[in-house]
Design a protein around this nucleic acid. Sequence first.
DNA 1: AGAACGATCGACT
DNA 2: GTCGATCGTTCTA
Length: 207
Amino acid sequence: MARLSREFYNGDTVEIARRLLGKYLVRRLDGELLAGRITETEAYVGRCDKACHAYGYKKTPRTSTLFMAPGHAYIYFIYGMYHCLNFVTEPEGEPSAVLIRAIQPVAGADTMRRLRFGDAPMTAYRRKNFSNGPGKVCKALSLSSSENKMDLTGDTLFVCDTLADIGLPEIPPAEHEILRCGPRIGIDYAEEARDFPWRFWLEKEET
DNA sequence: AGAACGATCGACT
DNA sequence: GTCGATCGTTCTA
């Protein structure tokens, strides 16, 4: 099954965050493929970005993942309850990553629904908020600290360009969709980096 | 050892 | 819009 190679992640973090939009995040769980179209990302650059956990090359047990080669998963625990999924970017030793903030489910949706809500009934509100936040993405894909440091060139967690790459029928291309960018969420403490327009998302064009 | 904080979420006014 | 939940990580001493 075709997937993005390590070379894709070995480059400019902001550009990679932009280029990941519209690609498919794939998670193999108990033999089943769960997949979602990536619709929102954020870039974090250790070298110059006070919002990055590894700002100034700070190395701790947690941030050690960010110092790995590009193309590994950085998954950390936050607010006592949630996990966030990132992809390590840049040449090895430049601690940087792209946070995956939202996906649209395209395969394994029923398993994802169970992981998110258990047996609770589906509602319009739950559908709208199914995987539109980093904690929700990890919950829907059953990702936690056990998957930290996972190699994205393996077959358990990876990204591909098209659904055909994982043997699924293509879905019609999204129309009237525009790429937007703006400041990142939840980093008001990060001084000048607070305003960096390093959050990217796909949005239906307004009429 | 103790304290403060956090790349969030969902319930509620 | 506000606010509490909840705990690993990190820093201070």
